[in-house]
């Protein structure tokens, strides 16, 4: 009952109210309230995530598992940043409420928390994703093979997009008049047309397929047919 029936009821009720809120304007407010609760829970989930990280790393350190020193670094970074943020250490006073320290701006670069964002978090996340440029290049060199017509289409399109969306288009095909009958052969025009018509057709069909899949999965969850998230005991 506590572990299966009530959760099933909660799922059905929450999902049902939101669908009902769509069809009946009188229940729009119910939908807002339920969604607002979920948004609040999303914030609680961040705390859960932080707590989880804390426990996992503490466990790693206490059992001296391999890489425990890195777990210690993670833990220190977590605790220090959290203290700067949650305790608003060194927060810049709020110009509207200068007499209320807890209303201070902790995100300003002049506050320790904002400083951590500016000089630690921001360069780290940005560079982590910048690394992908190298791996995409390496993967392209190793894996893109014109083995058959499908692969040639894929490669050809990638070429048109890569060249058509830079000045290379002008260098290679700029001599073709943009107004003339062969304008479609210009690389920039080809890139636009491929995106607007051919690729959009493919993506749209994929989207419609996914939409059907999501709708079906949502209904299965709301109606209690899919119960995979429940506790098995």
């Amino acid at each position: 009952m506590l572990k299966r029936t009530i959760p099933l009821f909660i799922t059905g009720a929450a999902g049902g109210i939101l669908i009902l809120a769509y069809f009946s304007p009188a229940t729009t407010n119910w939908g807002e309230v339920v969604t607002d609760w979920m948004n609040t829970l999303a914030a609680v989930a961040f705390i859960l995530g932080g707590g989880n990280l804390l426990f996992v790393n503490l466990e790693k350190i206490s059992s001296k598992r391999s890489g425990w020193a890195y777990a210690l670094v993670t833990l220190l970074a977590f605790v220090v940043t959290l203290a700067f943020g949650v305790l608003k250490i060194g927060a810049v006073p709020n110009a509207q409420f200068p007499a209320t320290p807890w209303a201070g701006d902790y995100e300003s670069v002049r506050a320790p928390f904002g400083w951590v964002y500016e000089y630690v978090l921001s360069p780290l996340t940005a560079t982590m994703f910048a690394l992908l440029a190298f791996y995409v290049a390496s993967a392209a060199f190793r894996a893109f093979r014109a083995k058959n017509i499908e692969a040639i289409l894929l490669l050809g399109t990638a070429f048109v997009i890569l060249l058509g969306r830079t000045a290379a288009a002008g260098i290679l095909t700029g001599w073709i008049s943009p107004e003339g009958p062969f304008a479609f052969l210009r690389l920039d025009t080809m890139a636009v047309n491929i995106m607007q018509y051919v690729s959009t057709a493919g993506t749209r069909a994929v989207m419609m397929g996914i939409a059907l899949g999501i709708a079906a999965t949502s209904l299965r969850l709301i109606l209690g047919i899919d119960r995979s998230y429940l506790v098995n005991d």
């Binding site: 392209a140 060199f141 190793r142 490669l155 070429f159 890569l162 830079t166 000045a167």
Partner: peptide, 19 residues
């Protein structure tokens, strides 16, 4: 867009060389 141009040309070259 300057770095973009050269890096795209490199990508095309790499794919061609790979093939």
């Amino acid at each position: 867009m300057g770095p973009q141009l050269i890096a795209h040309l490199l990508m095309v070259t790499l794919i061609v060389l790979g093939n």
